[in-house]
Amino acid sequence: MKQRIKIWFHSGNSPEIREFTLRKSILICFLILFIACTGTVLYVGHDYYLLKQADHDNAALLETVANQKNELKDQRRQIQIFAGEIQGLKDQIAKLGRLENQVRLIADIDKSGRSSGIWGIGGVSKVDLDQEIPLDAHHHALIREMHHQVKQIQSVADKEKLDFNDLIDKLTKKKNLLASSPSIKPVSGIITSPFGYRKSPFTGKRTFHSGLDISNRMGTEIVSTATGKVVFAGRKTSYGNVVIIDHGYGKATKYAHVRDILVHKNQQVKRGEVIATLGNTGRTTGPHLHYEVLVNGTPVNPSKYILN
């Protein structure tokens, strides 16, 4: 006799009890089928979950790769910009070199032996950096060349710094030399007696006149013809009231027969600064300035030093 399984159901709304009878084999088959279906659903669901997870990870990975590609392009674009800036620095250094050469030419100052020039050995490379490399191409060669040229630029910049310091030092010395060189007329007026041999107005004999005599009315302002230091301001026998200024570099100027002395000994004066007024003190035949230029103590022709 086949085994059967009875199942009773009771509903709370009815007093009746229902009975179902199932064969044991059918129940077992149903349970097996249920378990198989449940297992299949779970397997398919798990596989679907893994597939969705992989799809999500793949999308995230693709987004990361895309971001990295964009970042790489931005970096390469920056590299190209830097290459352009390096090229600009090279051009600026070249301009500075040309400017330095122009200044040296104008000021007649030779270049020191410390410099090897802007271009050539030890200088900046003449090779232009390729800024037009496609963004999807490798930039390794460009980066290496940039590093190389940056080092060269630094080296040349250090040399140019030395050259400019040398130039400034020499220009300063030249400026001081020029400022110390008598170059203007000490007083307005007429030159009544030039530098050199002449007939003495007092003795009538041929004598050497060591300066220029410039005549004008009494009280006319007399200026220093160069920057310097007053080393004498007082009276000297036949010269009358005298101002002597030391300009350095072996140069000095003398202003004689002045009426009023407006400076004092050891006073620093500038070119064009009023130092006295024209007079006729000492041995003179009339109001005038006796002006001398001395180089290493020897009188020279003042006319050669008057540029105005």
Rank of each mutant, 00 (worst) to 15 (best):
residue 223 V to R: 05
residue 270 K to N: 12
residue 251 K to T: 06
residue 58 N to I: 05
residue 296 N to L: 05
residue 6 K to N: 15
residue 188 S to A: 12
residue 137 A to D: 15
residue 283 R to M: 05
residue 166 D to A: 01
residue 197 Y to C: 01
residue 13 N to Q: 15
residue 92 Q to E: 10
residue 40 T to C: 14
residue 298 T to L: 02
residue 61 L to H: 11
residue 55 D to F: 12
residue 267 Q to Y: 04
residue 196 G to I: 02
residue 100 E to C: 09
residue 168 I to Q: 14
residue 170 K to R: 14
residue 147 H to L: 10
residue 269 V to M: 04
residue 59 A to H: 14
residue 190 I to H: 10
residue 111 K to F: 02
residue 280 N to Q: 05
residue 152 Q to K: 01
residue 290 H to C: 03
residue 244 I to R: 00
residue 261 I to W: 03
residue 187 V to F: 07
residue 232 F to S: 01
residue 276 A to H: 01
residue 292 E to P: 01
residue 289 L to F: 06
residue 50 L to Q: 13
residue 190 I to Y: 09
residue 239 Y to Q: 03
residue 169 D to W: 07
residue 147 H to C: 07
residue 54 A to Q: 13
residue 34 F to W: 11
residue 166 D to Q: 02
residue 71 E to R: 04
residue 125 S to K: 15
residue 23 R to P: 08
residue 128 D to N: 14
residue 155 S to M: 07
residue 155 S to G: 08
residue 256 A to D: 09
residue 186 P to D: 13
residue 187 V to T: 11
residue 62 L to H: 13
residue 51 L to P: 15
residue 181 S to W: 09
residue 101 N to D: 14
residue 16 E to A: 09
residue 127 V to K: 12
residue 153 I to L: 10
residue 28 I to T: 14
residue 274 V to G: 07
residue 18 R to Q: 12
residue 128 D to T: 12
residue 175 K to Q: 13
residue 181 S to Y: 10
residue 34 F to N: 14
residue 271 R to C: 06
residue 114 R to I: 14
residue 131 Q to W: 01
residue 141 A to M: 07
residue 231 V to C: 08
residue 3 Q to V: 14
residue 84 G to S: 13
residue 192 T to L: 04
residue 244 I to Q: 02
residue 303 S to Y: 00
residue 61 L to I: 11
residue 23 R to S: 11
residue 110 D to I: 03
residue 187 V to A: 10
residue 229 K to T: 13
residue 78 Q to L: 09
residue 228 G to D: 04
residue 197 Y to T: 01
residue 195 F to P: 02
residue 63 E to Q: 10
residue 204 G to F: 09
residue 106 I to H: 06
residue 299 P to C: 02
residue 79 I to V: 11
residue 70 N to A: 12
residue 93 I to S: 03
residue 255 Y to M: 14
residue 262 L to G: 10
residue 244 I to M: 01
residue 274 V to A: 07
residue 121 I to K: 02
residue 72 L to F: 00
residue 227 T to Q: 11
residue 20 F to I: 08
residue 142 L to W: 05
residue 213 D to A: 05
residue 116 S to C: 11
residue 78 Q to A: 08
residue 283 R to P: 03
residue 65 V to I: 11
residue 84 G to V: 05
residue 27 L to Q: 08
residue 238 S to N: 10
residue 235 R to G: 00
residue 187 V to K: 08
residue 4 R to V: 13
residue 275 I to P: 12
residue 34 F to Y: 13
residue 50 L to G: 15
residue 77 R to S: 11
residue 259 R to C: 02
residue 21 T to F: 10
residue 261 I to Q: 07
residue 60 A to H: 03
